[in-house]
Amino acid sequence: MIVVPEEFARSTIDREGEAGVAWLVQLPLLVDELLGRWQCAPDGEVMHGGVGVIVPVRRRSGESAVVKVSFPHPGNVHEPDAFVAWGGRGAVRLHERDDERFAMLLERARSTTLAEVEDGDEVAAVAGRLNRRLAVPAPPGLPRLSTRAGAWEAGLREDADRLSHAMPRRVLDAAVDTVRVLGREQPDVLVHGDLHARNILRAEREPWLAVDPKGYAGDPAYDGGTLLKSRALALVGADDLRGAAGRVLDVFAEAAELDRERVRRWAQFHAVQAAFWGRRHGFRVARDGPRLDSLTEFAERLAGVLTEGL
């Protein structure tokens, strides 16, 4: 049976409590059952993301693949639906699925992510091209991003009132306006929903393939903000934040063949949300202390820069 990585077990228990403990106890047996049913043999060290384990395997045919098992969560429900709709177009292929157990047998990509590429223009261009290829008609049954607009607006207003922050009113108003203008009426297009650089992997079949989609129907420009958030640490030391952020959005929008202003507005909304998230929960790279304060202040500054237009 597999050995669950300690870091993954610890973070799952911290996040999910007793439900996480119970799931982790059953996880090795669950993976064994899936390997038997899908006729796979372990073929490497167990890896993990934020909410699931990834087990490298060999199929009976000799083809390499991975078994991914995620902690049951509403945000993971439509991941296999997105893979089916893409059929390997810009994303890893789905071979098998067990929706009840939140498990999939997927094409194996490399462990190298787009986040490891030093050339910022290449990162934005690759993400933009994938965004364009993934923008196919949304299959029935996917959650619509437009249905989240009311909660987005309410959340922004609540955070603005309750949290200590340094964002001027015009910055908050711009984010709310984006929700009202772009958020409530969106196209019926499949959106990855979390297209940041760590969710784009080197591969054999294509140079880069997307993984870990949320699977929404909505505006492809939404993921321009997701990408910019993933580039934030690379922009922290920029002498000209306006120019650096503008360059990311320019390259992404051109490669994705999207309206640049639409991408900017979604990016500004994401930046405001990120600033509030940092105030409430911290960030993955900093949960507290001076580092968190610095990153939160940077998110607020980035939101301000994006509000003025680029």
Rank of each mutant, 00 (worst) to 15 (best):
L209G: 02
R280H: 08
A256H: 04
H281E: 14
V117N: 03
L105N: 09
E63T: 11
G141H: 05
A154C: 08
P220F: 07
L34F: 05
A234G: 10
P207E: 14
L172C: 03
V305N: 06
F71Q: 02
A256Y: 13
W23A: 01
W152L: 14
E204K: 05
L227N: 09
R60K: 15
Q39V: 04
P80D: 10
D121Y: 01
A154D: 15
A41P: 02
W208P: 00
G20W: 05
L27F: 01
D177N: 04
V117M: 04
K214D: 15
T12Y: 01
N131E: 08
A109F: 04
V117H: 06
V25A: 14
L182M: 01
E297Y: 00
A255Q: 09
N131Q: 13
V67Y: 08
L142T: 11
D293T: 14
A244H: 03
A151H: 04
E18F: 09
R101D: 02
W23N: 00
R205W: 04
T307I: 05
A91Q: 03
L190Y: 13
G49A: 12
F102M: 14
R280I: 01
E297F: 00
D159C: 13
V57F: 04
D219L: 08
T113C: 03
G237N: 04
D119M: 02
S64N: 11
V251L: 07
L235N: 04
L145I: 01
K68G: 07
L94N: 07
V305S: 03
D250Y: 05
D219G: 02
L310S: 06
R133V: 10
S70H: 07
V176M: 09
L209H: 07
R279I: 06
A255R: 09
R108L: 03
L94C: 14
R265P: 11
V176T: 09
V31N: 05
